[in-house]
Write a protein that binds this DNA or RNA. Sequence first.
DNA 1: CGGCATTTTGAAATACATCAATATTAGTGG
DNA 2: CCACTAATATTGATGTATTTCAAAATGCCG
Lengths: 242, 242
Amino acid sequence: MAAVACKLVNGDLLPERCRDCPLRKNGFCASLSPAELARLHPHLIRKRLQPGDRIISQGVANAHYYHVVSGTAKLSAVLEGGTEQILGLRFAGDFLGQRFAPEAGFTAEAATEVELCKVPRTALDALADANTHVGHLMHRQVVAELEETRAWVLAIAQRDARQRVAGLLHRIARRQPSEHAGARFALPLSRAEIGNYLGLTVETISRQLTALRRDGLIAIERKTHVTVANMVRLATAAGINA
Amino acid sequence: MAAVACKLVNGDLLPERCRDCPLRKNGFCASLSPAELARLHPHLIRKRLQPGDRIISQGVANAHYYHVVSGTAKLSAVLEGGTEQILGLRFAGDFLGQRFAPEAGFTAEAATEVELCKVPRTALDALADANTHVGHLMHRQVVAELEETRAWVLAIAQRDARQRVAGLLHRIARRQPSEHAGARFALPLSRAEIGNYLGLTVETISRQLTALRRDGLIAIERKTHVTVANMVRLATAAGINA
DNA sequence: CGGCATTTTGAAATACATCAATATTAGTGG
DNA sequence: CCACTAATATTGATGTATTTCAAAATGCCG
């Protein structure tokens, strides 16, 4: 919640916190020059959230962008009808918030314990305008997200229940911190939420999970802790690759 | 196919063709200043395509952006498995092509007779870099497309066959040239393509269309010419608004 | 330990898919 | 213009995956 003091490392413009940040190596920050990071750094705030804590609220103008440093965030939206719809998950390295979107189109909340890097819109937008390269980066960011969303449509449109569930587990596993490398993780969503996300019922999710366990693709302990026995077989079950 | 000669109108920097263009009033071009349009204009090429003609080929680096001036374009992609998937439709005013996407992620072809405004990437990219405002416009463009794609995911995830078909007809109707204002249009997709798009079979599409006709929401002549009897009832059938 | 939400499991209902046959349309050449 | 063909669309009968309804089991928290 509190801002960490800024301290520049001797002989290097790169701020200490950013240099130690796991995100420095990949994604958005990796493409920023030390000078750009240095300019941004004074405005960065590190936050740690507990499951259920709100990050972004749908329909509210949001003054910040966020970078997920660790943990998993859940994206959801309430439709006109009042029904809730899960829109996706965001993992370490993912960016939250759209430029030029006046108000948030969805709600984001911590699904697990989450560490965030909070960036004021004004700061990043100013940098983007001053430095074309950063503006392009943010633009790329959206293009990539669009691609991913399109891929998701395809995935859901012509796949059956087993493939959808296997596909979701596969996607979650791939994005786990590399040490565990997909082997073991806590499900960031309840069965009901998974069903909502995949367009299936709670019961179907439950049945498919037990089926996947019965077939030896995964193991489940304490309802939420999944161990993937075989990533390749899981991918096959998901209908990924030909 | 051939470039139209450029001719500036007296006392106005706005090129004649652009001024007469139906797109001038809305969308991307509406946000460009006369000076910006004038700069872009020499590079614009008007093309007229017949149904089935390719506009963009998946996997190929594309040297142009396109604006749909009239008609309907069909977007599709071939997945790893070799199966084809319809990704969507583009109507008059819609933009084709993503900045920073090195190669086309999908194929676009004319579904009806289509009029296009073809813009070299180099020209528009240069303008975008020279003039922040234009860069922002292209950025906004993607953000809007992302929003729309997300909405589509929602639509398909938790709706049954009738709702999906009604929803598609509603979306097509809304985007028809205003004179006809949704009343009557030719379906730009075959039953098989609609099924592919909506994740349903040809037979189901056919049955749902006859059901909608039987219920008096639409009329169909010559298989492809749809008249919407009641847009409000169609929207209700689609599950739009609560 | 007891209450409460979530998950699992079972049985019946249903929406959509599949298989199969017929009907319509568009295209082609006589 | 008509007959012929091929492609696309419709309609029917049956099968199946998923939903729905209902109940039991598990895990969670005071």
